[in-house]
């Protein structure tokens, strides 16, 4: 331990002593660097305890915040917009089409009105993103995927589905048993409103038990395949079977 020169009171500014005052003295810079790194490490250790409190506080604040600024803070609650392309065309009732093809007996094409005319289902679950944000109790309404599969007549050799999107880039996949679950749907409404463009409207996939990247936005194609073909993010290292809490190295509470 070196004695600290400033322990003694230094009332008058140093009278320009002959030895250059620059570069002399206590190595506080080094301590600042190490101290900041130490604080960061302490943050890592205490984050699991801090985060719950932050989320609760900011989540509550965001419901009463007319400026919307809390939404910009980490864990401020709400959805985050992710798109892999530069821009996504808007589609509505006049030009939206959903095709079902591949290993099926009767390839189908649906308009938005045709999808709306089919019997709808409603599922209310948490939405969990693989990057960490979670939106509690979010209602989704739409056509159960299994119903569209039955209407097209899945051939026996089909074991998986590839989903494509009208943003021109995004793809997703499910196995046939996953796709036949009753909490997997072609969603038309979210939070009791028609799906908006920024949420993947007019039609998106909704896979309740999996991380939200499986719920492809701007859905335009359902193709039955022999084997699973990994989707966009899965080619970049994310898990194909993306069960919430049991994949991608995460241990979130399951959404289903």
């Amino acid at each position: 331990m070196s004695p600290t020169p400033a322990a003694e009171p230094a009332p008058q500014p140093p009278p320009d002593p002959d030895p250059d005052p620059d570069g002399q003295g206590t190595p506080i810079g080094r301590r600042l660097v190490l101290g900041t790194v130490g604080l960061g490490a302490a943050g890592l250790v205490t984050a699991p305890y801090l985060q719950g409190g932050f989320e609760a506080f900011l989540g509550a604040a965001s419901t009463k915040d007319p400026t919307g600024l809390t939404g910009l803070l980490p864990n401020g609650g709400g959805f985050r917009y992710y798109s892999v392309t530069a821009s996504v065309p808007e589609r509505g009732p006049e030009n939206y089409r959903l095709t079902v093809d591949g290993l099926v007996d009767r390839p189908m094409t649906y308009t938005l009105d045709a999808l709306r005319a089919l019997p709808q289902t409603r599922v209310v679950r948490d939405v969990q993103c693989v990057t960490g944000w979670r939106v509690p109790g979010t209602p989704f309404e739409g056509v159960p995927l299994t119903r569209l599969l039955d209407a097209a007549g899945v051939r026996p050799e089909a074991r998986a589905i590839r989903f494509s999107c009208f943003d021109g880039a995004y793809t997703e996949s499910l196995t046939l048993p996953q796709a036949r679950r009753d909490d997997v749907m072609v969603a038309l409404r979210m939070q009791d409103k028609p799906l908006s463009h920024s949420h993947g409207g007019p039609v998106r996939l909704y896979v309740a038990p999996m991380y939200f990247y499986k719920s492809a936005k701007w859905l335009s194609g359902i193709t039955l395949t022999r084997d699973v073909e990994p989707g966009y993010w899965e080619d970049l290292g994310y898990d194909v079977d993306a069960w919430v809490g049991r994949s991608n190295g995460r241990d979130d509470a399951p959404t289903v």
């Binding site: 020169p5 400033a6 230094a10 500014p13 506080i28």
Partner: peptide
């Protein structure tokens, strides 16, 4: 080195 070292004048 100048940035890292703090003398009495820095305290003032």
């Amino acid at each position: 080195r100048r940035l890292g070292r703090f003398g009495p004048h820095d305290r003032v």
